[in-house]
Write a protein that binds this DNA or RNA. Structure first.
Length: 888
RNA sequence: GGGAGUAUAGCUCAGCUGGGAGAGCGUCCGCCUCACACGCGGGAGGUCACGGGUUCGAGCCCCGUUGCGCCCACCA
């Protein structure tokens, strides 16, 4: 053998060089080619701020599996990669870096700040993609994109202008979510509700012109500074007479009306609500209905503004305390109750969000969302697993306009320009030189940028060249599968869908494959703050990318969360090593031999058995993968390779390999081994690209096989061949296998030393069965450690005290009398008898049930009858053995 | 308040359209058998959360109950 394979597979070194080879050979690259069918996946662009985490590892492994699978099936597979500028995440990070140097972004100024951002992107933007390469991701790096590159910017401006012209983007004064720390608006999707322990403050306001007070409860006493009314339910008899009167707002000394509004729940609290139109979405609506004044009391940083009188400048929470204290001193604080409720926080920084009224840009959703709903309803877009549709529709049904403007600098600048002279607003793809209304040449661009997700929403087509009419767009769009976590369905998936329909007139992808979260070993979410994240790169370094990939895919169903565990990684690593060693064994035996395709007649039943099994696995695995059941497919490949190929076939075939007398048989065995190995490697390749490639190439090299490809990743995916369906051989081999298992069981339970040899006698009245055993004698002897096997159609000469193994078709006797304890053997057989009794009872009950006979399918009944016959036969045999033993 | 999940061996989880309960790890027994101790052979271990129902037949379908997390939601 020219190339010695190491005893243990070591992925280190091998992986990087194989990846390099793939890239150099341009295997990942796809061009629009009408002669082939396209298969396209767009990668969810990771943030440039990001480091590869387990979520990425899972997400990208799934995409890579699908891409490699389809590529081998002959599709022109494009996996389109790229990164996201991650507006707020990046900006916050850079601001923090600046803070360490004692400067703010304002000190730097917009232009300089953006320079910093680009520098940062240049330095770190490639980190995540190089990490993806470590995983083995076969994406087309020649086509790598960035959500803020020139093309994406063009796409963003185009979409903005189009939607604006259609009236689907507008600027308006609305209640928005404000993050006082990041100092920007955020969309509803970015608000994360957290349950917080707080209080309900019961406060009373004096009713003007009476000695009465109106008592109400609030969770946010500080907002009283912006109260402009008190509301009660119109049907509330307790307060009917007060509607229309005025109350005095203490501290501020503002007179405010008592209004009647259905929004007020009579059952809750005292049935009275203070109304702060500027700082509560409900109150804002109430205010609109009653034409109330909107008094904003907050600065952008969350401190109280001049409208708060003497509290101006104070932080919102300090003000809360101070105001409660003052009200208490005034005798207006009735009581304080403990109260826990959900508070909106910013999903990035977890600061409590302030609802306030500001002028912002919005996307009008009601019209845009319609095709997105229809598309999923009509299954033009299929969600996997299907139940994700409920979550999807829950969002689309309750959709509200999307606030897209952000008070950030890093991002796509809003293409809207205001004339300095006449105030005319112009929305344009490029900066207008003159005001279209007054002709003035000084226009100021809107300072805000767009929500990061505005550009990612266009990703499936902007990456293919849109708004240009490119060949790629025409060929690869709509894409085939989107693989992503269910956690970004609202942020991203929905927005891509409506954008695709609106801009392209077609769905962006045909299937969305959802996966769950990768949790830690205790089932907790991996997070930076908990410090329980496991670095995929460290896992790859220690166990190899193949092991990590395989671990992430097996034993988990689509859409379900999974737990990371090193034991599972080890199991996967061991599997890689198993294949490695099986291959090593096969290559060792093929050394210096020319293996040729054997005549059909030279194939032994075992050969046909494994080929037939392999053939079935090919069909099932392909089927599972096409249905996105990646975990099931992986498990089948694992079982086939480990149990059937290694534990059985290789063991069965060894005597033939070592027997140099029968060259034809040896050749048939080697041929079969190679075929099954190569086919298995191909099936496994999408999951474990590196080991499979390394072995495949070694096999090609060692055997000088010119029919093999230069890389497994461009080889053909195996297909089911009717000619390889050997059902009869499968059955006869299984008979022998169960006899082997039985003999091993007996030997183990009787404590027969493994090395102790013992002859066996196979008795069966079925000549065909005996033939099978005879044909397999070579390995049968080896597997049960019998120097000699005798075949009989009757029990002549079998001693009563021989140990017996009863299978349905035959009984195997082993004369071990001197070694065994008769009582124990009786006990063993009685246990078997008991089991058979149970089976007979069940089977008889079924077959004597008329309803079963009349309603169950024919095949099921036949199957059951066969089983019954077999049980009866075994039962008779076991009984006879027991009787024989007891006689002594 | 609404929605969608999940409950299967000691642990982590599979189980396709209903037809005799599976894997990995762990555990016990025996093996350094010339591919692999990251291994080989054998074993133990489950009223498939609970209660009903449909069916000849239910881990799987329907209804209800309980436990566990998850998502959504403007009751102050």
């Amino acid at each position: 053998m020219s190339k010695e394979l190491a005893k243990t597979y070591d992925p280190k070194g091998i992986e990087d060089s194989l990846y390099k080879k793939w890239v150099e050979k341009k295997y990942f690259h796809a061009e629009a080619d009408r002669s082939k069918k396209p298969f396209t996946i767009v990668m969810p662009p990771p943030n440039i701020t990001g480091q590869l985490h387990m979520g990425h590892a899972l997400d990208n492994t799934m995409q890579d599996i699908l891409t490699r699978f389809k590529r081998m099936q002959g599709y022109n597979a494009l996996w389109q990669p790229g990164t996201d500028h991650a507006s707020i995440a990046t900006e916050v990070r850079i601001i923090n870096t600046l803070k360490e140097q004692g400067i703010t972004k304002e000190d730097l100024g917009r232009e300089k700040f953006l320079e910093k951002c680009w520098e940062w992107r240049k330095e770190y933007g490639g980190r995540i993609t190089s990490q993806l390469k470590k995983l083995g991701s076969s994406c087309d790096w020649d086509r790598e994109r960035f959500t803020m590159d020139e093309g994406c910017n063009k796409a963003v401006n185009e979409v903005f202008v189009r939607l604006y012209d259609k009236g689907l983007i507008y600027k308006g004064q609305k209640m928005i979510n404000w993050c006082p720390v990041c100092q920007t608006t955020i969309s509803d999707a970015e608000v994360e509700y957290q349950n917080q322990a707080s209080h309900l403050w019961h406060i009373k306001y004096p009713v003007i012109g009476t000695d009465d007070y109106l008592t109400f409860a609030t969770t946010r006493p500080e907002t009283m500074l912006g109260d402009t009314a008190v509301a009660v339910n119109p049907n509330d008899d307790r307060y009917k007479n007060l509607v229309g009167r005025k109350v005095m707002l203490p501290i501020i000394n503002r007179e405010m009306p008592v209004v009647a509004d259905d929004y007020v729940d009579m059952e809750f609290g005292t049935g009275v609500v203070k109304i702060t139109p500027a700082h509560d979405p409900n109150d804002f609506e109430v205010g609109k209905r009653h034409d109330l004044e909107i008094v904003n009391i907050l600065n952008d940083d969350g401190t109280i503004n001049q409208n708060g009188g003497k509290y101006a400048g104070m932080d919102r929470y300090e003000a809360r305390k101070a105001i409660v204290k003052e009200l208490d001193e005034m005798g207006l604080l009735v009581k304080i109750e403990d109260y826990s409720h959900d508070v909106g926080t910013h999903d990035r920084c977890h600061t409590t969000v302030e609802p306030l009224v500001k002028e912002q840009w919005f996307v009008k959703m009601d019209e845009l969302i319609r095709p997105a709903v229809e598309g999923v309803k009509k299954k033009d877009i299929r969600l996997v697993p299907e139940n994700m549709e409920k979550t999807y529709f829950n969002w689309t049904d309750n959709i509200r306009d999307w606030c897209i403007s952000r008070q950030l600098w890093w991002g796509h600048r809003i293409p809207a320009y205001t004339c300095e002279k006449c105030g005319e607003l112009t929305v344009s793809r490029t900066a207008p030189e003159k005001c279209p209304k007054c002709g003035h040449d000084h226009l100021i661009q809107d300072p805000d940028t767009l929500d990061t997700w505005f550009s990612s929403a266009l990703w499936p087509f902007s990456t293919l060249g849109w708004p240009e009419k490119t060949e790629e767009l025409d060929y690869f769009y709509p894409t085939d599968v989107l693989v992503t976590g269910y956690d970004i369905i609202f942020f991203w998936v929905i927005r891509m869908i409506f954008s695709g329909y609106e801009q392209m007139g077609a769905e962006p992808f045909k299937t969305v494959l959802f996966h769950g979260l990768v949790r830690d070993e205790k089932g907790r979410k991996m997070s930076k703050s908990l410090g329980n994240g496991i670095d995929p790169l460290e896992v790859i370094d220690k166990y190899g990318a193949d092991a990590l990939r395989f671990m992430l895919i097996t034993g988990n169903a689509p859409g379900n969360d999974m737990r990371f565990s090193f034991e599972k990684v080890e199991a996967a690593r061991n599997f890689a090593n198993k294949i490695w060693n099986a291959s090593r064994f096969i290559l060792m035996n093929m050394d210096n031999k020319t293996v040729t395709k054997p005549d059909e007649s030279d194939l032994a039943p075992v050969d046909r058995w494994i080929l037939s099994r392999m053939n079935r696995i090919v069909r099932e695995v392909t089927d599972n993968m096409e249905k996105y059941e990646l975990g099931v497919a992986a498990a089948k490949i694992y079982d086939f390779i480990w149990s059937e190929l290694c534990d059985w076939y290789i063991e069965m075939v060894k005597p033939r390999l070592y027997n140099t007398d029968d060259v034809a048989s040896q050749n048939a065995a080697l041929y079969t081994l190679k075929k099954v190995l190569v086919t298995s490697l191909k099936l496994l390749h999408p999951y474990m690209p590196f080991v499979t490639e390394e072995i495949y190439c070694t096999v090609k090299e060692e055997t000088g096989d010119n029919d093999m490809d230069e890389s497994i990743m461009i080889s053909d995916w195996p297909v089911y061949e009717a000619a390889l369906d050997y059902a009869r051989d499968e059955k006869s081999i299984e008979t022998i296998m169960s006899a082997v298992k039985g003999v091993r069981n007996v030997r183990a339970s009787m404590n027969v030393p493994p090395k102790r040899e013992a002859d066996a006698t196979v008795v069966s009245d079925d000549n065909e069965v005996l033939e099978s055993f005879k044909t397999g004698e070579l390995y049968f002897k080896a597997l049960i450690n019998a120097p000699r096997v005798i075949y009989q159609t009757d029990k002549k000469g079998i001693p009563d005290d021989a140990v017996s193994v009863v299978t349905g078709d035959a009984t195997v006797y082993i004369p071990l009398a001197e070694l065994i304890d008769i009582d124990e053997e009786i006990a063993r057989l009685e246990k078997e008898e008991k089991r058979l009794e149970g089976e007979l009872k069940r089977s008889n009950a079924m077959l004597s049930n008329e309803k079963f006979l009349s309603k169950a399918p024919e095949s099921k009944i036949a199957e059951e009858k066969e089983k019954l016959a077999s049980y009866e036969k075994m039962m008779a045999e076991v009984k006879e053995r027991i009787a024989g033993l007891k006689k002594d």
